[in-house]
Design a binder for these strands. Structure first.
Length: 484
RNA sequence: GGCCCCAUAGUCCAGCGGUUAGGACGCUGGGUUCUCAUCCCAGAAACCCGGGUUCGAUUCCCGGUGGGGUCACCA
């Protein structure tokens, strides 16, 4: 039976490098064995999911060449491939569990749960649900639900005993039931949590092998229990190590660029990027570390996956990239420069910002230089980076808050001129910085110079990823400045 | 903190009982070159610790230590 595997991203932010990493292994396994690679959108979090994020994730994976056989855009026999369109299936599944007693209705309020958490923490007890609603008679619970009382559906974890997960990479991993919480399966808004939706969909879509990040390992016993409660066969489990920051913590945007779009915007070739990911936690049988996606697929072997979490080293990626650019023929380089760096679209965006500021055609390139490339040098503008009445520390803090806040703002996240201006003015007011001060700092941090075209047009054209990189650089630079 | 996972140079990998422990990035030195870069050569740099098992452990087992993950009506 050919394998069926899947990548199941949650559209709650920029396309994440970790998603590409896991997708690569799933893709390679499916292709290697003539199976199917499914893309499923896990958008059960109504608050954080957005269709623009979904679009971006699809585009990013496609850019990398990790194409899928079934998905929300291409369809397939097991659709729909968007969880928000499958809620009836989860409701039905929850009902089955409710009827069999494998799950129960929980009427606890958010307030009670919050209080409980505080209480248990104070008592140094394991945080988790106390089973308050576990033993409500089924008929009573049903009546309360029918009367419209808000509730969730929780999985009834057996009182004693343990559940063993057979991870194909790690062997048997056993969890005592006492350590497992009565997981919420259906939220009070009627949407499923990851755990229910994931199990129901993987079964429904005939997924045979689950290759996912190690961060799921500890919730796998819940999934195993669910499969058992439904009477379904489990898929084979493979938990891959997590990509790490230089300090070994889980790869995060605080410490690294984690958006696939960042690497695209800064001019990495997709082939290079995929190749690099393929060297992390994995090795080719002949030890060669430069290979194409097709070559990666050709010899792909699940047994060669390492379970330790590799550090994502940007320096090595850059070395791969430089090497690949040198491998290009002059004609090939010309082509990619034209397509990706000096594309007509990009020049069109630049022209209105630059035309008033140059006297000769040839001035265009040097003037527009800061629109290209990654980091800029702040040493020449160091004295201007900190506003008169502010300290370097304050300035760094404001920039950091700015970066964080922009991700929280659904409009600003889109990085359009209008949204950026509205957001930035509001942000300045909130932190008590005059527009003049804030805008100057942003301009210098984002451009590396004190004079530039209008700020928000400039930021928009620079692009979110480049701006974020430079703001982060500026923060680091500020931290090294002697405090006056 | 409880539970779980992991452990070869600074980093990414190779190794699957006996090797001068190999490759890549980075670093250092040298060569090519008008400079720089590229390219080439050379070098420094690792089996976390302690017990077992074994004729023999980097490799197998146990313990410790260290690192990580996870403990939500987020995924």
């Amino acid at each position: 039976m050919p394998p069926r595997v899947r990548i199941a991203p949650s559209p709650t932010g920029d396309p994440h490098v970790g998603t590409a990493y896991i997708a690569l292994f799933n893709y390679a396994f499916a292709r290697r064995h003539g199976g199917k690679f499914v893309l499923r959108i896990e958008d059960t979090d109504q608050q954080r999911s957005s269709s623009s994020s979904e679009d971006a994730i699809l585009a990013a994976l496609r850019w990398l060449g990790l194409t899928w056989d079934e998905g929300p855009d291409v369809g397939g026999p097991h659709g729909p491939y968007r969880q928000s369109e499958r809620t009836d299936k989860y409701q039905a599944a929850a009902k089955v569990l409710l009827d069999s007693g494998a799950a129960y209705r929980c009427f606890c309020t958010r307030e009670r749960l919050d209080a409980l958490r505080v209480e248990r923490e104070a008592a140094k007890l394991r945080p988790g649900y106390d089973g308050h609603c576990r033993d409500i008679p089924k008929a009573d619970a049903q009546a309360r639900a029918a009367a419209g009382e808000a509730h969730t559906v929780r999985l009834r974890i057996p009182e004693g005993g343990e559940t063993t997960v057979l991870d194909q990479l790690r062997g048997e991993v056993t969890f005592a039931h006492a350590e497992i919480d009565d997981q919420v399966l259906l939220k009070s808004d009627g949407f499923p949590t990851y755990h229910l939706a994931n199990v129901v969909d993987d079964h429904d879509m005939d997924i045979t092998h689950v290759l996912r990040g190690e961060d799921w390992l500890t919730s796998t016993p819940k999934h195993v229990l669910l499969y058992q409660a439904f009477g379904w066969d489990q898929p084979l489990w493979y938990h891959l190590g997590l990509l790490r920051n230089a300090d070994k913590s889980k790869l995060s945007k605080r410490k690294n660029p984690v958006s696939i779009d960042h690497y695209r915007a800064l001019g990495f070739l997709p082939e290079t990027f995929i190749n690099f990911l393929g060297t992390l936690g994995y090795s080719m049988p002949d030890e060669r570390e430069r290979f194409t996606l097709a070559e990666f697929v050709e010899g792909f072997d699940l047994h060669r996956i390492k379970t330790g979490g590799p550090v994502f080293d940007p320096a090595k990626l850059a070395a791969f990239s430089g090497h690949d650019i040198r491998e290009l023929s002059d004609e090939g380089l010309l082509q990619v420069l034209r397509d990706r760096v000096l594309s007509e679209d990009r020049l069109r965006a630049l022209i209105p910002l630059v035309r008033e500021r140059i006297d000769t055609l040839d001035d265009f390139v040097p003037y527009a230089s800061f629109f290209f490339g990654g980091s800029v040098d702040y040493t020449l503008v160091a004295s201007k980076l900190v506003p008169n009445k502010r300290t370097a520390k304050e300035t760094a803090k404001v920039l950091k808050d700015y970066i964080d806040a922009i991700e929280q703002d659904a409009d600003a996240r889109a990085f359009t001129v209008e949204a950026l201006e509205a957001f930035s003015r509001g942000f300045g007011e909130r932190v008590g910085w005059k527009p003049k001060e804030l805008f100057a700092v942003l301009r210098i941090a984002a451009c590396g110079r004190t004079a530039a075209p209008p700020l928000f047009d400039t930021l928009a054209v620079l692009g979110k990823d480049r701006v974020r990189l430079r703001l982060r650089d500026a923060i680091d630079f500020l931290k090294t400045m002697p405090t006056a």
